[in-house]
Design a protein around this nucleic acid. Structure first.
Lengths: 243, 243
DNA sequence: GGGAACTGTCTCTACCGTACACAGAGGAAA
DNA sequence: TTTCCTCTGTGTACGGTAGAGACAGTTCCC
């Protein structure tokens, strides 16, 4: 079972030849391959070759590729950081930004986190860290979870489209061509998409997408908190009045 | 090139035997397979078999699998709806909800929209529809684009984790087991994740995640708009004073 | 009717994940 | 020290994938 893999201690019996590899070494090699050539390039063969072994030897350490990817992900995301003390909003901003940085450092991580899958220790720790920021605020458990889900989702979305941005990191010029091709499409079919053409054509202020979305989401949370506090105050006043 | 596939009219020469298939039929078959067995089950072989042909015959219609998936996506997402007239916020709410519904109807669509890829006509039309809602508001082009990106990202995120939710749609009981296993992990390692354990353990109010996030995001946009309007009013007042 | 163009199929290559059997290594027990 | 037993890494094999290229048959244009 994939999920046991992270949490269950694997006892090492002392009999027989000593393993030449470690899970960490395998995960590192796989992460290196993914970082440089993309997640699609990560195959048992490729990773084993990177280590100088045959692909079947990896199965002595891992039940299958699913577990390898899960391991890569845990290693790429890493443990959550210590956030600087302060207001909940500043802390969540820091948390989101740092999470985005991890995703940007390993763009394949977005691809690796689609679909139903068990969460690893580091992933849960990131959640825990974010939830701690909301501690003490008048939000229900679901609202706390949903809040950090929205924030994490925003970061993931941005990391995903970061590769397609006309930024500095242009791997092999392929993206550039895609952007150029989409531009050509808009030029020739622009009449069907007037608002889109106008919005894209408008100059300035690109690459602010993450900060913009983050600010809107946190503004929204702030509105909710203010509403709750107003409500509390009214209730308190009513209580005082009825007393 | 994948991108030409949607926009470039393919001229049909009248010579030779008439094609037995159509792109629509192929896309429909592929969508059916994906809907019932997941995106992983969509292979050239499988789709061709569904139509009673060999896989190589599909390559007479499609350059490759990339184009097939792009075609499936366009078909699954479909054309954007006519939104009911009204305030921008209500319209964007409707837009987001309808987009989520499309994703929920074809959960594999989330998986199919990861990574760098060209957008199809329907996808651009959805963007256009959302941007039209923001028309006339004091937002820059980038802000408009970022706004709908956040909304779309939120819907996608929710559609993704909808499959993992302990809801009604429990395909083959596997999800149930994963949720159960994660619960077991939290029970045995809960001390490492106190806030998480508390938030999950808190009763009530599940399955509101989409509405919650949507409300927060739109609240945030509303705050920005109010700020802009206040600013405008101040500027106007200052102009009047200086005049 | 003949040539040209297009159809669907067949064969082939190069991968992928992984099940299984097996020779050798090396500590534990005799 | 010798035997045994377990664990290691590897070789082979199987069914799957995407796709290239050659091929025979069909159908229209000249």
């Amino acid at each position: 079972m994939t999920i046991d893999f992270f949490w269950h201690e694997r006892p090492r019996s002392t009999r027989g030849p000593k393993p030449a590899l470690t899970l960490d070494a395998i995960a590192d090699a796989a992460v290196t391959v993914a970082d440089t050539e993309g997640l699609a390039a990560v195959s048992m063969q490729r990773v084993a070759a990177e280590l100088g072994f045959t692909k079947m030897s990896l199965y002595r350490y891992l039940p299958g590729k699913t577990e390898l990817v899960a391991l890569m992900l845990e290693r790429a995301i890493g443990a959550p950081p210590e956030l600087t003390p302060g207001e909940w909003r500043a802390r969540l901003e820091e948390w989101s930004t740092l999470l985005l940085a991890r995703y940007l450092a390993h763009p394949w991580a977005v691809e690796a986190t689609v679909g139903r899958r068990p969460l690893g220790p580091h992933e849960l720790s990131w959640m825990e860290t974010a939830l701690a920021c909301l501690s003490g605020l008048p939000l229900t458990g679901s609202e706390r979870l949903d809040t950090i889900a929205v924030l994490a989702g925003h970061g993931r979305m941005l990391a995903q489209q970061a590769g397609a941005m006309p930024g500095e990191a242009a791997p092999d010029g392929a993206e550039d061509e895609m952007v150029r091709a989409m531009g050509a499409v808009l030029r020739s079919h622009g009449d069907r998409f007037p608002h889109l053409t106008a919005a894209i054509g408008e100059p300035g202020g690109a690459n602010q997408a993450f900060d913009y979305g983050l600010a809107r989401i946190l503004d929204g949370v702030e509105v909710l908190l203010r509403d709750r506090q107003d409500q509390d105050r009214q209730v308190t006043r009513a209580d005082a009045q009825s007393a």
